[in-house]
Design a protein around this nucleic acid. Sequence first.
DNA 1: GCCAACGTTGGC
DNA 2: GCCAACGTTGGC
Length: 149
Amino acid sequence: MKSEPDTYSVDDLAKEKQGMWEGCRNYTVRNFMRDQMAPGDQAFFYHSSAKEIGIVGIMELVSGGYPDPTQFDPKSEYFDPKSPKDAPRWLAVDVRLVKKFSQVVPLSVLKADPVASGMQVCMRGQRLSVQPVTPEEWQAVLRLAGVEG
DNA sequence: GCCAACGTTGGC
DNA sequence: GCCAACGTTGGC
């Protein structure tokens, strides 16, 4: 799960008991939240457009996908006037921080690893802010982070 | 700041 | 329903 740390960083999440992953306005990600993401699932926290680009920690989903309240808030930068109230277009999920890595696992290191280099996040031009990770890739990242699997 | 990639929009 | 134009993402 990607976030620009200027907007929302792993340290921001660390300060909160749980965080709402809101504002995503991409249909593929919406479907992923709706169909794939469930409470108890774990996810990596990835910093994009950052001084140190890479994976910074592990999160756990506290919820599955539910209607993103910001789409109905005219004061929100994520407000979507075309989203029907009775059929919300966009979803959010709630997350909590499981672990912040002692060091960022940089994108360059992911790309250099034979297993982690297969992750979507390593692919040129990939833009989805939420992406699936295989069990093998998960373990590879934990190894690169120096974390017990 | 550049620009490649790709999702979205809208005219037809 | 095609596809060009446009907007956004995000690494570099």
